[in-house]
Design a protein around this nucleic acid. Structure first.
Lengths: 112, 112
DNA sequence: CCCTTGGTTCGATAACTGTCTATGTTGACG
DNA sequence: CGTCAACATAGACAGTTATCGAACCAAGGG
């Protein structure tokens, strides 16, 4: 009843070869995290108190402020973060289903 | 006693903001998997019988042979795959420590 | 109102990346 | 040797991306 994007997406990486479509979908997530600046922003949001952070809390990653905004947009477009304006500030939080999906992707096979 | 690269690398994504160096290292892995073709190649190797596959087993991903070779090289350089020549064929297998490292990265926090 | 502060959007640019064709290289087999 | 099959490397090119400064938009105070 939610968004159609809430599906499990893909089996574990080690289960079987991905189809083109599965690969396309999963690659988007990996690609979004495949940049050092974005990874720092993501971990900053994910580990911030209350599960959310305003941009001003996490902007200290060594690039200009427009660049921070650009990367946050990419993370939003990849479905990893959501944003909400509250008064003067904009708060970002991790999309909850995402970590579950990634965990599923990396679930190890039978350990022997 | 093994390679110095066998370190845990990084804490879970949700534990604390990554340092620049941690982000750099982890992003390399994510970036390598952030391409649909590479993801198909990786899953094909990871799921192949015996834990390894010759290039000829996995080359059917819709791009030319040199392109396959190029992507396999990227996966090797990222430390995700290793290769070994045996006679005419070259076999690729998943670097075992990698899945463990990725699993650690995505370990969920306390679920409440 | 105007100004300040927090963020986003725009436009430009340099760097990187995925893809191809063409060419090498390596090993097996007559 | 010569040839063939399996992969890799080299070089070229188009498309994408990370970055910046400048301009813009939104919300609160004076």
């Amino acid at each position: 009843m939610r968004e159609p994007d809430a599906e499990p997406c893909c089996p574990p990486l080690t289960e079987r070869p991905f189809t083109a479509e599965e690969a396309e979908r999963s690659a988007r997530m990996f690609k979004a995290l495949g940049d050092p600046v974005r990874l720092r922003l993501f971990t900053a949001v994910a580990s911030h108190e209350g599960g959310e952070a305003c941009v001003c809390d996490i902007s200290d990653v060594g690039v200009s402020q427009p660049t921070v905004s650009h990367h946050l947009k990419k993370l939003r477009e990849a479905g990893l973060l959501t944003s909400e304006r509250r008064g003067t500030w904009v708060f970002y939080r991790v999309e909850p289903s995402v970590l579950a999906a990634m965990g599923r992707l990396l679930r190890a096979p039978a350990p022997a």
